[in-house]
């Protein structure tokens, strides 16, 4: 029954799998589309991505090579045989993927990815600048504590989109010098930053691709995220959680500048009630 050549359809399918695998591998050259890294923990995130890319790339290529090879080789007829495996053979065969995948995947989580995860969610470094970002449909409001270095009291009842967007309490002396900006975030280069995250309405997600930062903002909870910008430049702040019809438009600007320039800029900002 065995014929020398596989039917055209088998060759085509095998070729398809080979081309698919090759193109997929090539396509991951899109790794160069990862935005430039501008935060301290960013390279840890990228390292995790690259690690998984290599591991899955190898598995994917080998798997598809075998798949294509089998399709090509075993489509020429021949005599199949009925040979179920004994449980022992099955189990020993299973060891290979079980061990390989367990090790490969947990190394990614614990060894490669773990340190960056701890950096993001660990202890707040000393000397961190604390700022507040308030998400609302469909704007980012940014608050700096002002000259007294303290955030004033806010209340939802005081929020007025035009006259008091974050709901500062005028009666609190710490509030009057708080600086409130629409959609613009200024950060000092090299200094750790802690961001208090609040939402006034629905879920939003505070995402700055270049800083490898993404943190959902849950209304009713005071969220937080921390990072250290290490590269001066102008970046974009995006909302990464569907928040309504204007979600796609909920963008903001992030300016990372050398610390002295940042300090000068901050001094020039008038408090909301000044």
């Amino acid at each position: 029954m065995e014929t020398a050549r596989p039917p055209a359809s088998a060759s085509a399918l095998a070729a398809f799998f080979v081309v698919l695998a090759a193109l997929t591998a090539l396509g991951f050259a899109a790794i160069s589309w990862l935005p430039v890294v501008a935060s301290e923990h960013g390279p840890g995130v990228d390292r995790t991505i690259v690690y998984i890319l290599v591991v899955t790339g190898v598995l994917f290529l080998v798997g598809h090579a075998v798949l294509a090879g089998f399709v090509w080789r075993y489509s020429r007829g021949g005599t199949p045989e009925y040979r179920p495996l004994s449980p022992k053979v099955e189990w020993s065969w299973a060891l290979l993927p079980v061990l390989a995948l367990t090790v490969a995947s947990e190394v990614g989580v614990l060894v490669i990815g773990g340190p960056a995860w701890s950096q993001i969610y660990g202890e707040t470094p000393a000397g961190a600048l604390e700022i507040e970002v308030v998400g609302k449909q469909f704007e980012w409001l940014v608050r700096y504590p002002g000259k007294d270095g303290r955030f004033g009291r806010t209340a939802a009842e005081l929020v007025h989109d035009v006259r008091n967007p974050v709901g500062l309490d005028k009666k609190d002396p710490a509030a009057s010098d708080d600086v409130v900006l629409r959609g613009a975030l200024h950060l000092p280069e090299g200094r750790p930053v802690v961001v208090r995250l609040r939402s006034l309405d629905v879920l939003h997600s505070f995402a700055i691709p270049e800083l490898r930062v993404k943190q959902d903002i849950v209304p009713g909870h005071l969220g937080r995220t921390q990072f250290r910008p290490v590269r001066a430049g102008s970046y974009e702040l995006a909302c990464a959680e569907l928040c309504g019809l204007g979600h796609y438009r909920m963008s903001g600007k992030v300016v990372v500048e050398p610390a002295p320039e940042f300090e000068r800029w901050l001094r020039e900002q008038a408090g909301w009630f000044e």
Binding site: E139, L141, D161, R249
Partner: peptide, 10 residues
């Protein structure tokens, strides 16, 4: 009337 994209617009 409000524009949610531009909070100052009412």
């Amino acid at each position: 009337l409000k524009c949610d994209v531009h909070g100052w617009m009412s």
